[in-house]
Simulated scan of single mutants.
Amino acid sequence: MALVELGRYDRQLAAILVGRLEADGIPALAFDAGASIADGSWLLIPVRVMVDADDLAAAKAIVGAA
């Protein structure tokens, strides 16, 4: 399994996308979601949504249709 970046989103959208992808059978992870909560700049640092390289095309299709 090799993780690749699907995209960078705000925390809420990243959480929604991870849930949508997983509902469609594509494992996904949100990286950096808690990286800047402590210093109050959470709107400035995007969350990376990561998927397996083999699932990238399908994940892009799901995100593009949403």
Rank of each mutant, 00 (worst) to 15 (best):
M1D: 05
M1V: 11
A2E: 15
A2C: 01
A2R: 15
L3Y: 05
L3W: 14
L3I: 01
E5I: 13
E5G: 01
L6F: 07
L6S: 03
L6W: 06
L6K: 02
G7L: 07
G7S: 06
G7H: 10
R8E: 13
R8D: 01
Y9I: 02
Y9F: 15
D10C: 10
D10K: 12
D10S: 11
Q12G: 03
L13I: 11
L13H: 11
L13E: 14
L13Y: 06
L13G: 00
A14S: 09
A14Y: 04
A14G: 04
A14H: 08
A15E: 13
I16A: 09
V18T: 08
V18E: 08
V18I: 09
G19K: 09
G19Q: 07
R20I: 15
L21H: 09
L21N: 06
E22C: 02
E22S: 11
E22M: 14
A23N: 04
D24K: 14
D24P: 00
D24W: 03
D24V: 00
D24A: 14
G25N: 07
G25K: 08
G25P: 06
I26W: 06
I26H: 03
I26Q: 01
I26D: 03
P27Y: 02
P27H: 01
P27T: 01
A28F: 10
L29N: 03
A30S: 14
F31P: 01
F31H: 11
F31M: 09
D32W: 12
A33Y: 06
A33L: 14
G34L: 10
G34P: 00
G34C: 01
A35W: 05
A35K: 14
A35Q: 12
S36G: 00
S36C: 14
I37K: 06
A38Q: 10
A38F: 08
A38G: 13
D39G: 03
D39N: 15
G40P: 10
G40Y: 10
G40M: 08
G40F: 08
G40H: 08
S41Q: 12
S41R: 15
S41N: 12
S41D: 04
W42Q: 12
W42P: 00
L43W: 10
L43S: 11
L44T: 05
L44G: 09
L44M: 13
L44V: 04
I45W: 12
P46C: 06
P46T: 04
P46S: 09
V47Q: 03
V47A: 05
R48Q: 09
R48M: 02
R48H: 13
R48S: 15
R48D: 07
R48I: 07
R48A: 15
V49W: 08
V49P: 04
M50H: 03
M50K: 14
V51I: 04
D52N: 10
D52E: 15
A53Q: 14
A53F: 04
D54K: 11
D55N: 15
D55C: 05
D55E: 10
D55H: 15
L56F: 09
A57Y: 01
A57V: 13
A57F: 05
A57P: 00
A58S: 12
A58K: 15
A59Q: 05
A59V: 07
K60N: 06
A61Q: 14
I62L: 15
I62A: 08
I62W: 02
V63Y: 07
V63A: 14
V63D: 07
G64M: 03
A65V: 02
A66M: 14
A66R: 04
